[in-house]
Every structure is written in C-alpha cells, then in structure tokens.
Simulated scan of single mutants.
Amino acid sequence: MLESALPASSSLTGRTVLVTGATSGIGFATARRLAERGATVLLHGRTAEEARAAADRLIATTDVSATQLPVFGADFTRLDEVEELAALIVRDHPHLDVLVNNAGTAAPERHTVTTDGNEIAFQVNFLAHYLLTCLLEPALTSAPGGRVVNVSSSLHRTASIQWSDPNRARRYSRLAAYAQSQLALTVFAADPRVTAVSVHPGVCDTALLPLYANEGVTAAEGAAHVVRLCDPAVEIVNGAYYDRAERVAPAPAATEDRTIKRLNKLADVLVGRAAA
C-alpha cells in the first residue's frame, strides 16, 4: 500500500512535535522540515547545550523563530534523565501532537553496559524511547490524533530478541545488538496505548551509515519520509511499518501479539516500571 505524499508546502502550524536526537542527521533534518512548515518543534539533544546549538543553526539558516524551537537535554544512557525530560515536557507542553523517536546510536565494538545495567544500543535506541513514550502518553492522548513515529531500520528483519539475555552478555555482536534494538522499536509501534508507526527512512549518509553501506542518500531525503508521517492529513494504522514512503509488512515478529506483550513486560522490568 502506498499513501501519496502531501505537498511540502502543506502547513503544520499549530502542531507540536518532539524530535529526539534532533541535533544531527535525520533528526536535525526532520526538525528543519517540520519547523519550516510551521510546527513548534521540541528539539532534544544529549545535552541542552547541544540542543541549543542545533536551534541556533536552524534560526540562522531559516525563517524559523526561537519561540518555535524549545530545547531539551537528556542523555539516553541515563534513564533518570529520560524521566526528567518527560516531566519537563508534560509540564510545559501538556498537549503533544507527535513524538518522533529518532535518537540512535551504533552499538560499539565492545560490549558496553549503561549505568542502568542495559546494553547501550538496546537502551538508547529502544528502552529510552519506550520509557519516554509511556511517560508522554497523557500529552499524546490529551486530544484525538496524537501519534508516535519510530525511526527504525530495515535491519530489524535480520534480528531476534534474546529474551533470556537481552543485554547479549553471553554472546555479543555489534550488528546483532543494533539490529535487536531496531526490531524492538518496530515491535513497540504495535503497542495499542498510543497510535504509532515505524519507518525505515532509507540508507542515509549519517553517522550510522557504516552499519549499512558505503553510500547513502542525504539526511534531508530520509527526513522527508519521517515528516510525511507526522502530518495529520496522512492516515496511519497503528503498528504500520514503512520502507520510506511505502507501507510494507515488517518482520513477522513485529506484529505477533505474544511478542508485543512479552517485549512490553521485558521493557517494563528493564526501565523500572514493573509492578512491585
């Protein structure tokens, strides 16, 4: 199924969108396109200083005003900072139209665990976004039409979730760890609590390019596919997966009810939301 893209000039004025990982690559290009179309874009960076620098670059190169670009900092290798980020956003922006879960990192060569005890790619690419989405649910559902866009990867098709060892402590491969994080993010889009989709924006020339190929399209070209899914005029189905502009079937595991429930249970434990 291929939904037609809307003209780039269609207005998003009045919409509020949070973009994680908005300081570079696809996230920065997504923020630019959204702001140029009138949206208020909440810019997230690893630190508030990095987010402010990104906002300053946008202000200097577009007609976007500073009031359109509130900035937030949170290091996704620390779940307490994710919680603080969510609290600030709910306080300052109690209504959120779209959450773009874009922040990502390549798994390092050596097995690396965060201070929260999770493999770093699994936490940054999935668990932090899982926690953030759960905490922002009140803002995303405060009015009809709220949605989540997970920036995933075609590499999710190569992955499996190691349920007994999600941190891959026993057998580590950086590519397998990265792919597992992308599968988890894709599965999470089918969670019924908030309408969500996932999208592979194509192989883009960003910091993650070495995981895919030697060449890629520009970050702006990849961002166009993300921005399209942020537009309320583009109808989406909860759990849908897009390869660029085309809606296609994700890996079979991504739509299995058992896998969705199992992943939510695992994530709740790993982010500290499991019932006592």
Results as ranks from 00 to 15, higher is better:
residue 271 V to T: 01
residue 58 L to M: 14
residue 212 Y to L: 14
residue 229 L to V: 10
residue 92 D to P: 01
residue 100 V to H: 02
residue 113 V to L: 15
residue 25 G to M: 06
residue 100 V to K: 01
residue 266 L to D: 02
residue 177 A to Y: 08
residue 197 V to N: 08
residue 172 Y to I: 09
residue 26 I to Q: 07
residue 197 V to G: 05
residue 20 T to R: 00
residue 72 F to E: 03
residue 49 E to F: 04
residue 102 N to T: 03
residue 81 E to D: 13
residue 156 H to D: 10
residue 67 T to M: 05
residue 89 I to H: 01
residue 13 T to D: 12
residue 135 L to Y: 03
residue 170 R to G: 05
residue 108 P to T: 08
residue 259 T to D: 02
residue 91 R to E: 15
residue 85 L to W: 04
residue 29 A to M: 08
residue 219 A to P: 13
residue 73 G to A: 08
residue 81 E to F: 05
residue 193 R to M: 07
residue 115 T to G: 15
residue 3 E to L: 13
residue 56 D to C: 05
residue 127 L to Y: 00
residue 224 A to Q: 01
residue 34 L to M: 02
residue 3 E to I: 12
residue 159 A to W: 13
residue 153 S to L: 10
residue 276 A to G: 14
residue 169 A to S: 14
residue 149 V to Q: 02
residue 23 T to V: 09
residue 81 E to P: 05
residue 139 A to T: 02
residue 255 T to E: 01
residue 204 C to R: 06
residue 245 A to K: 02
residue 196 A to W: 01
residue 42 L to F: 12
residue 109 E to I: 09
residue 70 P to V: 10
residue 255 T to R: 15
residue 80 D to T: 15
residue 239 G to C: 05
residue 27 G to S: 12
residue 60 A to I: 09
residue 176 A to H: 11
residue 136 L to D: 00
residue 115 T to D: 15
residue 92 D to G: 03
residue 136 L to F: 03
residue 137 E to V: 11
residue 92 D to M: 01
residue 98 V to P: 06
residue 240 A to C: 11
residue 215 E to D: 12
residue 157 R to M: 12
residue 109 E to L: 14
residue 236 I to D: 07
residue 48 A to S: 10
residue 249 A to H: 08
residue 64 V to E: 04
residue 207 A to K: 14
residue 76 F to C: 06
residue 33 R to P: 00
residue 59 I to S: 04
residue 111 H to K: 11
residue 73 G to S: 09
residue 47 T to F: 02
residue 261 K to V: 07
residue 222 G to R: 08
residue 147 R to H: 10
residue 229 L to I: 11
residue 130 Y to Q: 03
residue 89 I to A: 03
residue 5 A to Q: 11
residue 4 S to W: 12
residue 84 E to L: 13
residue 150 N to L: 08
residue 32 R to Y: 05
residue 93 H to R: 10
residue 168 R to D: 05
residue 250 P to G: 07
residue 141 T to I: 09
residue 161 I to W: 10
residue 246 E to L: 13
residue 18 L to Y: 01
residue 129 H to I: 00
residue 230 C to I: 03
residue 262 R to Q: 15
residue 228 R to W: 04
residue 232 P to R: 05
residue 74 A to M: 04
residue 179 A to G: 11
residue 245 A to F: 03
residue 7 P to F: 04
residue 35 A to M: 13
residue 253 A to D: 14
residue 188 F to Y: 15
residue 68 Q to C: 11
residue 29 A to R: 03
residue 4 S to T: 12
residue 226 V to H: 00
residue 75 D to W: 09
residue 213 A to K: 12
